[in-house]
Design a protein around this nucleic acid. Sequence first.
DNA 1: CAACAAACTTAGAATAATTCTAAAAAAGGC
DNA 2: GCCTTTTTTAGAATTATTCTAAGTTTGTTG
Lengths: 133, 133
Amino acid sequence: MKVYDHQLEVPGLRMTKQRKEVYRALMENADHPTASQLFDNLKNSQESMSLATVYNCLEALVEHGAIKQVNVDREPTRYCQNSAQHGHFHDQSTGTIHDINFKSGINLIDILDLPEGTEISSLEITLKGTLPS
Amino acid sequence: MKVYDHQLEVPGLRMTKQRKEVYRALMENADHPTASQLFDNLKNSQESMSLATVYNCLEALVEHGAIKQVNVDREPTRYCQNSAQHGHFHDQSTGTIHDINFKSGINLIDILDLPEGTEISSLEITLKGTLPS
DNA sequence: CAACAAACTTAGAATAATTCTAAAAAAGGC
DNA sequence: GCCTTTTTTAGAATTATTCTAAGTTTGTTG
Ligand SMILES: [Mn+2]
Ligand SMILES: [Mn+2]
Ligand SMILES: [Zn+2]
Ligand SMILES: [Zn+2]
């Protein structure tokens, strides 16, 4: 899958060469890579950059809502190209992470017992187990 | 709140002095402490022990389902005395973590779009935001 | 009980993901 | 082109956690 430049814009974020490359590398890698996996991917590419920059770019993209961070236990943080609301499934037999969507017409907040007036800024849902083979 | 020894048993786990003390310290501390906070609490107590042992004991208790681990982003892992299924709310204005229960009669799995035959071994749900003052 | 093996604890060293530092480079407005 | 701000960078620093290897405790067996 090719990703074209004009799709690599993020409202309110200056898209430097490096940020574009990191964003593109993530968009072309659906399997929730770590920062250093992305760094390795980029090493062999035109636009190589330092690991610190990969971290900086990912942080900027996360802050602007373009991508998501995924943490499973204390494993290295992984990054997700899917900016829509969704959950994650960590397949313990392969180590892979898969996106999970919520069934339509359901608002997750409605099933939680929260005090009146709670302000929610983010919601994360992560499962572990094995997928059917 | 005092916690008596006979409540500090965990099926299938040999309860050494150290494991009992770590378990008790967590039971007496409702605010999801870190390993090193528990270590500090225990330093001033009868049964002091090494930080490695606190980690070892917590790991054993987690593996046996007596307590839960809570990870929020990359912050130090926190431990939860509540072994029942529940979620967590991270209050960003205070840094505290609160337990969240699901409304009764609702099965969280039912609202997720999972492939037929998926085996789930754990489910985590974590919110961030602010609670009403 | 004494001997033994297995499980546990320990202090300190090692690890590794991430962040920090401070200097160079790039961007963009005027 | 000049100036200010932002970004990138290499490498050092940080720090939560794990590892190591030696000592201790526990439970078992003869
Ligand atoms: Mn990869
Ligand atoms: Mn505490
Ligand atoms: Zn995802
Ligand atoms: Zn909890």
